[in-house]
């Protein structure tokens, strides 16, 4: 007999969890408070960089391990994945930051000006030094979420209910049969007291003047940014990191910083159209690492921080083996119940 799984939340964690449990033959019912896959969840605003090597400059080794697994998952499950590596650049005066970044990461090739120009003709000539992480990839988060939902809908074990907010009483106990996988992100703060918000602001710009093949990270002492190319001449520019859980609006200062950094990367961005200014709040635990937290027959997948797409598939696999095999990966499972 197949196990009943109720998943709450339709962000990248919820959808990956649904997929993982379906693959294990479970009957999955997904409940989301939103109207659909839309801008109300912070996965919608993600950059979509799959960059375990670059992230390990400052993230813990766990993120790298989860990232590698997730990268190979997306290679199979995302239609929009682009395997073009990523490029880290810096201006000459920020050489110290650049050298430090190189020292703390690996699996890159050092590029000189000519090699960068060959790789990214539009911006390569502007920088004297670059690092190319060939194995990294990027995807379009929105297309990927919608694609995941579409393929889940094909499966008869799967059902979904949008526009439904579970009440406190409903959330207090697991469903009568089976398990609940709570993937509500910051909304789960009602039961995960050590969850906090880290605000991020991002832009979508459109320019026909500029073409990029891969995500570019520009190191800068005050405003490090990344730019991820999307379809139709669009570019995602991100992202700020502010200790705040105010998801209402982007600040003028942040937008100014993002724009001026984009302009620093390519002056053509001065003429770009501003398509979107996005703001959301990433859910994070105190150590900025993701967790599976079990309480009875409820398992929370949360604290994915800035690593939603980089960690969600690997965390979903661990949730499935926790529930179905009783297997505990001690790096991510946390049974502390406050």
């Amino acid at each position: 007999m197949s196990t009943d799984i109720e998943i709450v939340g339709a962000g990248v964690a919820g959808l990956c969890a649904a997929q993982a449990f379906i693959e294990r033959g479970c009957r999955v019912h997904l409940i989301a408070a939103s109207h659909g896959i839309d801008d109300s969840c912070c996965s919608w605003w993600a950059g979509g960089m799959l960059a375990p090597w670059c992230e390990s400059e400052s993230a813990e080794p766990l993120i790298f391990r989860l990232g590698l697994e997730s990268l190979s998952y997306w290679q199979k499950h995302s239609q929009s994945i682009q395997q073009a590596g990523s490029l880290v650049v810096a201006l000459r005066r920020d050489r110290a930051d650049f050298d430090q970044f190189a020292r703390r990461t690996d699996s890159f090739a050092r590029l000189d000006r000519a090699q960068m120009e060959a790789m990214e003709p539009d911006i390569g000539h502007r920088f004297d030094m670059g690092l190319h992480y060939a194995e990294e990839a990027h995807l379009d988060p929105r297309k990927t979420l919608l694609g995941l939902l579409e393929s889940l809908r094909q499966n008869e074990l799967f059902s979904i209910e949008f526009d439904r907010q579970l009440s406190e009483a409903e959330l207090a106990s697991a469903p009568r049969t089976g398990w609940r996988i709570d993937c509500r992100g910051l909304a789960a703060r009602d039961s995960l007291k050590d969850l906090r918000g880290v605000k991020g602001e991002m832009l979508i710009l459109e320019s026909r003047e500029i073409s990029l093949q891969r995500p570019i990270r520009m190191l800068h002492p005050r405003h490090p940014i990344y730019i991820v190319p999307r379809e139709n001449h669009r570019f995602m520019v991100g992202a700020t990191m502010i200790e705040s859980d105010d998801r209402s609006l982007a600040s003028a200062r942040s937008v100014m910083e993002l724009l001026s950094s984009a302009y620093g990367l390519h002056t053509g961005f001065a003429e770009a159209a501003v398509i979107e200014i996005g703001t959301d709040v990433r859910p994070a635990f105190t150590d900025n690492l993701p967790r599976l937290r079990r309480r009875g027959r409820t398992v929370h997948i949360n604290g994915l921080y800035r690593h939603g797409f980089l960690c969600a598939p690997a965390m979903a696999q661990r949730a499935a083996s926790l529930v179905l095999d009783g297997r505990i990966d001690e790096d991510v499972v946390d049974e502390n119940t406050d």
Binding site: R196, K199, I242, E243, S244, D245, D246
Partner: peptide, 16 residues
């Protein structure tokens, strides 16, 4: 300046 855009929203970080 940078940690919270309004006084209340950075509470989680302040309490840490």
């Amino acid at each position: 300046r940078r940690e919270s855009s309004t006084e209340k929203s950075g509470q989680a970080f302040w309490s840490l």
